[in-house]
Write a protein that binds this DNA or RNA. Structure first.
Length: 661
DNA sequence: GGAGTAAGGGCTG
DNA sequence: AAAGCCAGCCCTTACTCC
């Protein structure tokens, strides 16, 4: 069926007789309990129920994008010369041998998957559901369908209204996570008896290393699997399936979904593991090393024999879908609710993060994310809301159907890593380079270094890959805090009136963004360069206060006290009371905070250059702190960097960090 | 030029 | 009328530092 679809999928309009065949969904893929389903009918119904909707239009856009990707890969594949291909085939063969050498047959893995878990739990609590087609979820989305419903083509991740069309007598039961968590706990108690370190992939899936059990009891893996299934049933009343293999990949081959399958079959004609190996040369030439390795491993059936790693949470998020709206008050209200929820979740786990990501889904199903990395760690609702609303503000006006918030880059003390290791690292860093480069070391404030840390404190010897944060709140007395909470934010750019048209580019290709901005900004920079231009007229009011303030920078007094930015603003002149004399950004006077941030940014830029000494050689003594004079003297290269920086929304307002460079 | 970092997008389960 | 939520990982691009 796939092959037939692929051919027709070339052009959505070419198959007018059966247009549904070019609408790719995952709803007809193989899934337990779906044997014998009339796939053609499902495909048609899904198409009929979908066509014309905004969701459908977005799917078509995505589909077109994938087709382009496939075309590009095909073109690259076709361009490969015989010599190149031979080379990459050698690379692939070598890699296959290397991977083969890592094959570990000493382990016995069991992949346990609860059958239609949510639906089965619901049937336990309401036996009248037994034997009737039933789905857990609602009209908009189904989480799980029981086997009776699957026979109609109803399945997880399918909208309820489509499911009901496929199966009019379908019974809907609302989701009840507490119930599923409880039953999941019961199953896990059983798993634990076979492997205390089993890996829970989700509420209803787990990987168990049963090597030891098999050895100790002298039983086969199949016997253990059978016994485990019976025990689970006995203790929960739920059934499960179990797959046995020498590694987790074989116990359950995952990682290749709709899109990847599409690409593999369409570009390379790969649909089996064997073909994956045969066409290894193509895979190695067109994919990254890690991707090619993954595909070759899948072809070889290698992977996932390593002991379970202690996984540290890397992010925490929430998102809510609602009736699409462009009502800004409503959107901010939703954002506030999410901030509160997220903050509460974070506090439950004692998490503090410094990267905040806002996720948006427009009413036309386009997904955007906007992120900012802060100098300080946050977890409070107010902080989350404050920064998130800046990100949202930059996108207005907009009609949304979903808002999400995510916090990542956590402070490490949560995992029980004592503060000492952080200190030690910083100190060892210092001692490793005691030649005054400590200042440089501090430029990595807030940056991550990967480190392997023995987690003895957690009561086991597992060596865990973790991230060590050298943060601004570390207890190192040499690292002082700035109370002004400078952020890496670009919210002010939205007021520039120069971003129109940028958002349209954002999702196409990142390359467009810089060009678009620089093009629009250049006239302004020319004005600055032109001694007769407007920039010249707007020389700075260089007050004695400002001067003395800035001249104190050498002893860090100025910065480390967390001076508010009201003084900095005097460095920037607002032409006609709205246009920045330095870069032309437009900011009405009512945007007090944004103006201060903007001024901070210019100050940081200037001081950064001062510290680096890169451009100071070109400065005229006595004029070092005159912004305009300074800006005229710095290289054009730097100006374009600055503009790019502004445009890529990573404009740094971080005084403290930058000054240490 | 390479490594590291950040941001944005996407795929997968 | 109506297409979820969450987390991890990968890729690409841009930029900075060495």
């Amino acid at each position: 069926m796939e092959e037939e679809e692929e051919k027709k999928g070339e052009s959505a309009s070419s198959d007018g007789a059966r247009p549904w065949q070019s609408y790719h969904t995952v709803y007809t893929n193989a899934k337990a309990g779906m044997e014998g389903v009339d796939k053609e009918k499902v495909q048609r119904v899904v198409y009929e129920m979908s066509k014309g909707s905004k969701y459908f239009e977005n799917e078509e856009r995505k589909e077109a994008f994938i087709r382009q990707k496939i075309e590009r890969m095909r073109a690259r594949s076709a361009k490969l010369t015989a010599a190149e291909l031979a080379h990459y085939q050698t690379v692939a063969d070598k890699r296959i041998l290397e991977l083969e050498a890592t094959r570990d047959l000493s382990k016995v893995w069991l992949h346990v998957d609860m059958d239609a878990f949510y639906a089965a739990v619901e049937t336990l609590s309401d036996p009248s559901l037994k034997g009737r087609p039933m789905a857990v979820g609602g009209m908009s989305m189904i989480s799980t369908a029981n086997y009776e419903a699957r026979r109609f083509g109803v399945r997880a991740a399918m909208p309820g209204f489509i499911a009901r069309k496929l199966c009019p007598e379908l019974v809907f039961v609302p989701v009840d996570f507490e119930k599923y968590t409880y039953y999941s706990g019961l199953t896990r108690k059983v798993f634990q008896r076979y492997d205390p370190n089993f890996i829970a992939a989700s509420l209803d899936e787990a990987y168990l290393d049963i090597t030891e059990v098999c050895k100790e009891r002298g039983v086969s893996a199949g016997e253990v699997a059978e016994e485990l299934r019976n025990t689970v049933f006995g203790e929960t009343g739920l059934t499960c399936s179990a797959g046995v293999a020498a590694n987790r990949l074989l116990a359950k081959i995952g990682g290749i979904g709709k899109v990847t399958e599409h690409i593999l079959t369409d570009v390379f004609g790969i649909s089996t593991c064997e073909e994956m190996l045969q066409k290894g040369g193509y895979l190695c030439s067109l994919f990254s090393r890690s991707s090619a390795d993954f595909f070759l491993s899948v072809g070889l059936g290698i992977g996932g024999t390593d002991p379970p790693q202690m996984r540290l949470r890397k992010s925490i998020s929430n998102e809510r879908t609602f009736q699409a709206t462009d009502n800004e008050a409503l959107l901010y209200q939703k954002l506030d609710e999410l901030a509160e929820l997220l903050s509460s979740d974070m506090q439950k786990e004692g998490l503090h993060g410094r990267t905040l990501t806002l996720k948006l889904k427009t009413s036309s199903f386009e997904v955007r994310t906007r992120a900012l990395t802060l100098q300080n760690y946050i977890s409070s609702r107010d902080d989350i809301y404050k920064h998130a609303s800046k990100l949202l503000k930059a996108e207005l006006p907009i009609s949304l159907r979903l808002i999400g918030l995510r916090v990542s880059q956590f402070k490490e003390d949560k995992v029980g890593a004592p503060s000492d290791p952080t200190q030690k690292t910083l100190l060892s860093f210092m001692s490793a380079d005691a030649s005054g480069n400590f200042i440089k070391g501090q430029s990595s404030l807030g940056s991550e270094t990967s480190n392997t840390l023995s987690m003895n404190d957690l009561g086991d010897d597992i060596s865990v890959e973790t991230h060590e944060m050298i943060d601004s709140e570390s207890e190192n007395p040499l690292v002082q805090n700035d109370a002004s909470d400078p952020t890496r934010s670009c919210t002010w750019i939205e007021f520039a009136g120069k971003t129109e048209g940028m958002h349209e580019h954002v999702n196409d290709s990142t390359m467009d963004k810089t060009d678009a901005f620089i093009e629009k900004s250049d006239p302004k920079s020319h004005q600055l360069e032109n001694p007769n231009g407007r920039g010249q007229d707007s020389s700075l009011p260089h007050t004695s206060e400002t001067s003395s303030c800035l001249n104190q920078k050498d002893n860090d007094h100025y910065l480390l006290q967390g001076e508010t930015s009201s003084r900095h603003e005097e460095q920037v002149l607002w032409i006609n009371d709205y246009e920045c004399s330095l870069c032309g950004i437009e900011l009405p006077s009512s945007f007090v905070e944004e103006r201060q941030e903007h001024a901070d940014f210019h100050l940081a830029e200037r001081l950064q250059k001062e510290e680096s000494g890169m451009d100071s050689r070109t400065l005229i003594a006595g004029k070092r702190y005159h912004s305009l004079a300074y800006l005229r003297l710095v290289s054009g290269r730097h100006r374009s960097r600055l503009k790019a920086k502004i445009n890529t929304r990573s404009a740094s307002h971080c005084l403290r960090t930058d000054i240490f460079r």
